[in-house]
Design a protein around this nucleic acid. Structure first.
Length: 569
RNA sequence: CGGGGCGUGGCGCAGCCCGGUUAGCGCGCCUGCUUUGGGAGCAGGAAGUCGGAGGUUCGAAUCCUCUCGCCCCGACCA
C-alpha cells in the first residue's frame, strides 16, 4: 500500500474523550472512529489488524478440527423464549422488531441458534463430537460502553460451540480449546492468565476466562502463589477471623435512631464494622432470600445465586424488605424472621456479641451470638473475596491483579439442549440431550489488549503477527529521483516476496513521516534517503527494540525478508 | 439508571461568570514559492446555523426552560 493512496488519518493530539492507552492510540493512529456510543468504524488500518487476529484464530480453530460457519445476526424471539433467556438476558439483549411487530434479538451470543441447527441436523452419536465456530459481529446493549473497543455495544467475536455424547468427550474438547486459546494469545504476544470464572448469564458447570494483564482492565483477578487464580466474581477463600475470644453476653435491643447503614451504626455504637452482621434481603428467581455476612464484607451475588441455583438475583426492593423484616430498609436482622431462606456466610460463624438489625424502626440488637440467638442451618461461602484474604486451596494470603477479559470458555452441559429438546440417539437407540461447550473470544477486544501491552510514548509497537503492515518504507524526500527509484524497487521486491509493505511516498517533511511511523507502529521501518544512498545503504530500524542498522541496498530485500519471516508467529 | 463533567470549522481548545461590531487561537486542509534524516518557512485562501428547540432582551455562543448527544465514576460482560 502506498500511504499517499491510503486512508490513514492520524492525529497529532490525543482525542479529548479517550482515557486508556489503547483507545487513544486506536483513534490517533487512524484504526477506528466512533460512530456513536459503543459503536465504531474500523478504518483500513484497524481492519487489517482485526483480519490478522482473525486469521490466527481461524488457524488455531482449524488446527483442532473446528469447522467455521456463519449464523445470522438476527434471531427470532421464539428461540430465546425456549431457553428463557428472552427474559433472563435483560436489557443487554438488543431487541428489534420487524414491520409486522414480530420480535427479534440481535445476537449477543449464539447458543440458541446453534442448538437449533444441531437439533435439526444431527441425529446420531456417530456424528459426535464436533465443534462449530463463527467470527461475527455481536450486539450487546451495554449499560455503559467504555474504553473504545474494549466494551463496545457492537463488537467482533469468535464464538465456538461443541457437541458431545458425554462429559468426558466435552472435557477433551474443552482442554483442546483451552490449549488453542493459549496458542492464539501467545501468537498475539500477550501476557495473559487463564483463570477460573463464574458462569453468569451463559450458564454451565465450569468456566475459565483468559485475562490479559492490564492495570486499566475492568476485571479483577484473585491469585495465589500456589497457582490458584479466579475472577473476583468466582474466587473462593477464607476471611481471616478478627474476633478475639469473648464471653457471650445476653442479647438486648438498643436504640439506633435513623442509623441505617453499617457505617452509621458502627460509628453510633462505637464498634468496628466487623462486629456487625450485615443482613441483606435479595430476590432470587422471584423468591425472597436473606443473606448474612460480616459487616465489613460484601456479598458476592454470583456465588449466592450459584448456591441457590437461581438464574436471576437482585437486591430486594424496599417493599419486599419491609414485608420480609417488618421494618423499613436499614434495620433488617436475622432474629425472628420466618418463612424465608437464610444464607449465612462463613465469616459470621466466629462472631460473638455482634450487632444485628432489630426488624423494627430505629432498633438494633447487640450481644447477638449466631446459633444461639437465631438458628443457622449451615454456613456457606457467599463473600466477595479479595486481596489479603486466604487461599481456599493452600491457606496463603491472596493477591490480585487487573486484567482485560479477552475470552471465556464454558462447559455448558445440557443446559441448552435440555430446554431446547436437542437430542441424539445413543448406541442403545435412546434419545439423549447433547452435552455442549461454548467458547467465546473477543477479537476486537483482543486488538485493544495488544495495544495496551505494546506501546510507548510515541505510539503502537505491533507484534509482527498482527501488524497491519510488516514493513514500512519511509522515503525521505520522495521527490528525489534516486530516493524514489530505490524506494519503488524495494517496495516491489518486498511485495513479491510476500511481505505486507507500506510505502510512505508522501511529500511531507521527514519529521511528519517519522512521527507517523512511530505512531502506527509497523515493526520494521526502512528509511531511504539521499544521505544513505550516497553510501549505497538504507537504514533498518525495529520499532520495538529501537535497534537500527545500515544495510547495503543490494542486500536489503533479503535481509528484511529474513527479519520478517523470523518474527512471524 | 444514580452521581459528575462536556457539546464552539476535521482535531485540540479559548470566549460564557459580567449579553453588545466581521466568534478567536493552535494543529490540520487548499494554492504558490522555498524547504526535506525527527511534527519546516513565507505569502495567500477555504471552512463554524456556537448540539437542537423554545424563551428573556433593542440585542444571546454568553441568561432561563426543555431536549438530544458524548465522556467519566458505580451496578453488566467477550
Amino acid at each position: 500500500m502506498r500511504w499517499s493512496r491510503a486512508l490513514i488519518p492520524t492525529h497529532k493530539e490525543d482525542p479529548s474523550h479517550a482515557e486508556t492507552v489503547s483507545h487513544k492510540l486506536m483513534l490517533r493512529a487512524g484504526l477506528i472512529r466512533r460512530l456513536t456510543s459503543g459503536v465504531y468504524n474500523y478504518l483500513p488500518l484497524g481492519w487489517r489488524v482485526v483480519r490478522k487476529v482473525e486469521a490466527i484464530v481461524r488457524e488455531e480453530m482449524d488446527r483442532i478440527g473446528c469447522q467455521e460457519l456463519l449464523m445470522p445476526v438476527i434471531s427470532p424471539s421464539e428461540l430465546w423464549q425456549e431457553t428463557g433467556r428472552w427474559n433472563v438476558y435483560g436489557k443487554e439483549l438488543w431487541r428489534v422488531h420487524d414491520r409486522n411487530g414480530r420480535e427479534f434479538a440481535l445476537g449477543p451470543t449464539h447458543e440458541e441458534v446453534i442448538t437449533d441447527i444441531v437439533r435439526n441436523e444431527v441425529r446420531s452419536y456417530r456424528q459426535l463430537p464436533f465443534t462449530l465456530y463463527q467470527i461475527q459481529t455481536k450486539f450487546r446493549d451495554e449499560i455503559r460502553p467504555r474504553f473504545g473497543v474494549v466494551r463496545a455495544r457492537e463488537f467482533i467475536m469468535k464464538d465456538a460451540y461443541s457437541f458431545h455424547e458425554n462429559d468426558d468427550s466435552l472435557s477433551v474438547t474443552y482442554d483442546a480449546m483451552y490449549d488453542a486459546y493459549c496458542r492464539i494469545f501467545d501468537r498475539c504476544e500477550l501476557d495473559y492468565r487463564p483463570v477460573e470464572a463464574a458462569t453468569g448469564a451463559i450458564g454451565g458447570s465450569a468456566s475459565h476466562e483468559f485475562m490479559v494483564l492490564c492495570d486499566t482492565g475492568e476485571s479483577e483477578v484473585i491469585v495465589c502463589e500456589c497457582g490458584y487464580a479466579a475472577t473476583d466474581e468466582r474466587a473462593e477463600g477464607l476471611i481471616a477471623t478478627v474476633m478475639p475470644p469473648e464471653e457471650p453476653l445476653s442479647a438486648e435491643p438498643v436504640d439506633t435512631p435513623g442509623m441505617k447503614t453499617i457505617e452509621d451504626v458502627s460509628l453510633f455504637l462505637g464498634m468496628e464494622p466487623w462486629r456487625l452482621i450485615k443482613t441483606i434481603v435479595y430476590v432470587a428467581d422471584g423468591e425472597p432470600v436473606v443473606a448474612l455476612i460480616r459487616g465489613d464484607r460484601d456479598v458476592n451475588e454470583e456465588k449466592l445465586a450459584g448456591l441457590l441455583g437461581a438464574s436471576m438475583i437482585e437486591a430486594a426492593p424496599p417493599a419486599v424488605v419491609e414485608k420480609v423484616t417488618g421494618a423499613p430498609v436499614g434495620f433488617a436482622g436475622p432474629i425472628g424472621l420466618s418463612g424465608v431462606k437464610l444464607m449465612v456466610d462463613n465469616s459470621v460463624e466466629p462472631l460473638v456479641n455482634a450487632v444485628v438489625g432489630g426488624n423494627a424502626v430505629d432498633v438494633h440488637i447487640r450481644n447477638v451470638t449466631p446459633g444461639r440467638d437465631f438458628s443457622v442451618d449451615g454456613y456457606c461461602d457467599i463473600a466477595r473475596i479479595g486481596k489479603g484474604d486466604l487461599c481456599c486451596k493452600c491457606g496463603k494470603t491472596l493477591d490480585s491483579f487487573r486484567g482485560i477479559e479477552v475470552s471465556q470458555v464454558f462447559k455448558l452441559g445440557t443446559k441448552y439442549s435440555d430446554s431446547m429438546k436437542a437430542t441424539f440417539l445413543n448406541e442403545n437407540g435412546k434419545a439423549m440431550p447433547f452435552v455442549m461447550g461454548c467458547y467465546g473470544l473477543g477479537v476486537s477486544r483482543t486488538v485493544a489488549a495488544i495495544i495496551e501491552q505494546h506501546s510507548d510514548e510515541y505510539g503502537i509497537m505491533w507484534p509482527m503477527s498482527v501488524a497491519p503492515f510488516e514493513v514500512e518504507i519511509l522515503a525521505v524526500k520522495f521527490k528525489n529521483e534516486k530516493v524514489r527509484e530505490a524506494s519503488e524497487q524495494l517496495y516491489d521486491e518486498l511485495r513479491a516476496a510476500g511481505m505486507d509493505v507500506l510505502l510512505d511516498d508522501r511529500h511531507d517533511s521527514p519529521g511528519v513521516k517519522f512521527k507517523d511511523a512511530d505512531l502506527i507502529g509497523v515493526p520494521v521501518r526502512v528509511t531511504i534517503g539521499e544521505r544513505g544512498l550516497k553510501e549505497g545503504t538504507l537504514e533498518i530500524k525495529m520499532r520495538r527494540t529501537g535497534e537500527q542498522r545500515d544495510v547495503a541496498i543490494e542486500e536489503a530485500t533479503a535481509e528484511i525478508v529474513k527479519i520478517v519471516e523470523e518474527a512471524r508467529a
